[in-house]
Simulated assay, not measured.
Amino acid sequence: MFLELSEPSSTPTAGEYAAARETTLSALAANKLTAYYRASGDYAGTTFRTLGVNAGDHVGPDDLSAITLLGVDVSPRGVRTLQGDNPLSDAVRATLSAIAPGADLRTATASDLNAAWELHAAIKAAIADPTTKGDSNPWVTAAKISARKRPSLIPVRDRVVGNLLGDRALQSAFVYWQLMRALLLDAEVVGALDGARARIAADAAGDLQNDFGREPDLRILDAALWVRAAR
């Protein structure tokens, strides 16, 4: 079920997965999920993925605008770093080039997850504040930028859903990603995702956000868990 990674602590336990699976099935069945994708509503929905230009090889202005829909932003210094010509922005571009734009968490290998981590780490280094006392660790913002750039591979990991899935999922991106990957490979969860997708499309009808038909299953899973945790 889980990938063999170099860090043993990155493997979820059977109990952690069983709890995540139960929570996920309940979240996907919730009627409140439809609100997340209504055009007249005030949730990010598909706009997080579709806003403006989402280039495959760099982090652009539209990416930085899109993450504000999820309640985070990048400082002026971080914006200049990401948009400039410097070793930190070069590292972000290099890590993006190592991950195909259509990479999918369902078929991800251990190498793919390591590349995703390198992307997250490069973005985090670029937006960190070097003047902050102690370590500046903007991991939530970096996770959301990473998810915008590779929405079928990298889930939106933050404290809200991390707490929902357990302490180790909150503390370790690899535990979190492994749980999400296993959920996307679970036949019952896949059926629940298909049901949620159909229910959202039917319930929202003419009020459905643009491009919902191409919304990755990972994004719907993200949204369902966030709605469950936030409510």
Results as ranks from 00 to 15, higher is better:
residue 60 G to A: 14
residue 120 H to S: 09
residue 227 V to S: 06
residue 91 A to W: 00
residue 214 R to Q: 13
residue 28 L to V: 10
residue 195 G to A: 10
residue 36 Y to N: 01
residue 110 A to H: 07
residue 27 A to D: 05
residue 156 V to C: 07
residue 125 A to S: 15
residue 133 K to Y: 00
residue 20 A to D: 07
residue 172 S to N: 14
residue 152 S to L: 00
residue 88 L to T: 01
residue 155 P to W: 05
residue 38 R to H: 11
residue 47 T to E: 15
residue 229 A to D: 00
residue 217 D to V: 02
residue 23 T to W: 08
residue 177 W to R: 12
residue 29 A to S: 13
residue 178 Q to A: 05
residue 83 Q to A: 15
residue 148 R to V: 05
residue 75 S to D: 06
residue 119 L to Q: 10
residue 54 N to C: 06
residue 43 Y to M: 09
residue 83 Q to N: 13
residue 207 D to W: 07
residue 130 P to A: 04
residue 161 V to C: 07
residue 160 V to C: 09
residue 181 R to Y: 04
residue 186 D to R: 11
residue 216 P to L: 10
residue 18 A to D: 14
residue 131 T to A: 09
residue 62 D to V: 02
residue 58 H to N: 12
residue 172 S to I: 13
residue 44 A to W: 03
residue 18 A to F: 07
residue 125 A to I: 04
residue 28 L to W: 04
residue 76 P to A: 11
residue 130 P to Y: 08
residue 113 L to C: 09
residue 191 G to W: 08
residue 48 F to V: 06
residue 179 L to A: 08
residue 91 A to C: 07
residue 10 S to M: 09
residue 227 V to H: 04
residue 100 A to N: 07
residue 209 Q to N: 08
residue 102 G to D: 11
residue 228 R to F: 08
residue 200 I to T: 00
residue 17 Y to V: 08
residue 180 M to S: 10
residue 56 G to H: 11
residue 201 A to P: 03
residue 228 R to G: 05
residue 223 A to G: 06
residue 122 A to N: 04
residue 55 A to F: 10
residue 74 V to C: 10
residue 205 A to T: 01
residue 6 S to C: 11
residue 77 R to P: 02
residue 211 D to S: 11
residue 44 A to N: 03
residue 231 R to V: 06
residue 225 L to C: 08
residue 117 W to Q: 15
residue 64 L to S: 04
residue 174 F to S: 09
residue 48 F to E: 01
residue 191 G to C: 13
residue 33 L to Q: 01
residue 36 Y to M: 10
residue 88 L to V: 09
residue 114 N to T: 13
residue 140 V to D: 01
residue 155 P to R: 02
residue 218 L to Y: 06
residue 98 A to F: 05
residue 189 V to A: 12
residue 120 H to F: 14
residue 45 G to T: 01
residue 138 P to A: 09
residue 49 R to A: 00
residue 100 A to T: 09
residue 202 A to C: 03
residue 197 R to K: 15
residue 188 E to C: 07
residue 22 E to K: 13
residue 4 E to G: 14
residue 83 Q to S: 15
residue 72 V to W: 03
residue 20 A to S: 14
residue 166 G to F: 09
residue 155 P to C: 02
residue 34 T to S: 13
residue 223 A to P: 03
residue 63 D to M: 07
residue 143 A to P: 04
residue 154 I to V: 15
residue 212 F to C: 01
residue 62 D to K: 07
residue 181 R to N: 03
residue 151 P to N: 08
residue 42 D to P: 04
residue 65 S to G: 03
residue 77 R to N: 13
residue 57 D to E: 15
residue 136 S to T: 12
residue 227 V to M: 12
residue 68 T to F: 01
residue 215 E to T: 11
residue 192 A to S: 10
residue 57 D to H: 15
residue 199 R to Y: 06
residue 129 D to H: 12
residue 119 L to C: 07
residue 28 L to Y: 06
residue 195 G to R: 13
residue 76 P to M: 11
residue 95 T to F: 02
residue 16 E to G: 10
residue 202 A to S: 12
residue 129 D to Y: 12
residue 66 A to V: 01
residue 92 V to L: 02
residue 26 S to E: 14
residue 121 A to K: 10
residue 56 G to R: 12
residue 194 D to W: 03
residue 147 A to L: 05
residue 50 T to H: 08
residue 176 Y to H: 15
residue 222 D to T: 06
residue 55 A to P: 15
residue 39 A to Q: 11
residue 155 P to K: 00
